[in-house]
Design a protein around this nucleic acid. Structure first.
Lengths: 204, 204
DNA sequence: TGTACATCAGTGAACGCGCGTTCACTGATGTAC
DNA sequence: TGTACATCAGTGAACGCGCGTTCACTGATGTAC
């Protein structure tokens, strides 16, 4: 039974939405086409009316999963007042490294969710990931800028170091959340502390 | 054709060796039992003479993959002279974050290789991973100690922050190594720089 | 020390399952007149 | 505006492949005497 074109477009969008969530929750390979179609209220056969392959959907999702603006990073980067901006960033980092964020069963930060899988994936997926990472680093650098210089070398270097520590800490904390909660907590707390110390000393 | 008991033990050991390498290179799920048996010079049917399941092998490999001592971290942690020890650690971190390490097609650092997969794996795998992570953190803390206090709070916190940054940076650098080499290089360099700055300022 | 038999590591075909993908079919939509 | 037909999104069975696991079989090893 044929359906309206707008209905079909809606179905396609729902498949992409489901994929964006599930891929980030469980990884590309752990989510089956049939699961995504079911999540969108459809049967699996129709998948190929919308996408040439699962790989194509992966690439599309990967390209659209990195959204620093939606992650509140955009508004932080846009703040003009330096002290305010740095304080807002510290709050952002604390939230990122929070207990709540770690425990979330929902979709993860795409950097953590995709980093290990992406090098085994198709070229378009890899390109989308790299572009997304560049966007995040640029937003981090903008949030860390000193004076009016948005892309000054030191702020960019600092931003990358900060990002690495945040990503590494959350990835490690999550990996042992179910097995060794105290150590998981300690990793988050130590990294929050380390970031604050680093920001504090480099401010002088 | 039955073989000697020592030959059988040797075969078992070769399967484990192959698994330790391949699991860390490609992840548990990307390596098939038949591949490991072939790497050990055997056919796949005999796998279950040595292991109850693939899961059991995963757990065994996971438990034995974290060896800070073999990773030169043990000797660093054992150094008595503080300045020497910190210098040796800085060299260790620079090597970890080196171009060579990133490009290696060989087995990865188990923290990076297993972190994302481990939470989907069996309990024994998770327990082995958590124990290994604890061992690494202890070795990092010992390498960072000030004075004679091996497990003082600040050194441990510093060590965890350092570990997070190293793990995050190498994971990100590797994920885009094939797609955006300049950015990959920049991530490694910025993290080396950040670690040096952090160590330098916290020394005062 | 020699003989006879049970044991068991290794072999390779086969099974069952999950998953990506294909395909024939359906029937309402969209379009040509 | 109404009618006739082609289009195409959705359906669900089926295919092919990879992979973990099982199984009957082989024959040298290890052991009991």
């Amino acid at each position: 039974m044929r359906i309206t074109r707008v209905q079909a477009a809606g179905n396609r969008a729902r498949v992409i939405d489901a994929a964006a969530k599930e891929f980030r929750r469980s990884g590309f390979d752990q989510v089956a086409v049939v699961d995504l179609m079911r999540a969108a209220g459809l049967t699996h056969g129709g998948f190929y009316n919308h996408f040439a392959s699962k790989t194509e959907l992966e690439a599309e999702v990967c390209a659209s999963s990195f959204d620093p603006a939606r992650a509140k990073l955009g508004v932080i980067a846009a703040m003009a007042n330096e002290a305010e901006r740095l304080a807002a960033f510290e709050h952002y980092a604390d939230t990122y490294l929070s207990d709540r964020r770690r425990q979330e069963a929902g979709p993860h930060c795409p950097m953590i969710a995709f980093a290990s899988e992406v090098s085994r994936k198709s070229k378009p997926v890899q390109v989308g990931f790299a572009a997304g990472l560049r966007r995040y680093i640029a937003a981090f650098a903008a949030a860390h800028r000193r004076g009016g210089d948005a892309a000054s070398e030191p702020s960019r270097s600092t931003a990358i170091f900060t990002l690495s520590a945040m990503v590494g800490a959350l990835a490690l904390a999550r990996s042992i959340a179910a097995t060794d909660k105290p150590l998981s907590d300690e990793i988050l707390a130590a990294t929050r502390q380390g970031l604050a110390d680093f920001a504090g000393t480099s401010k002088r």
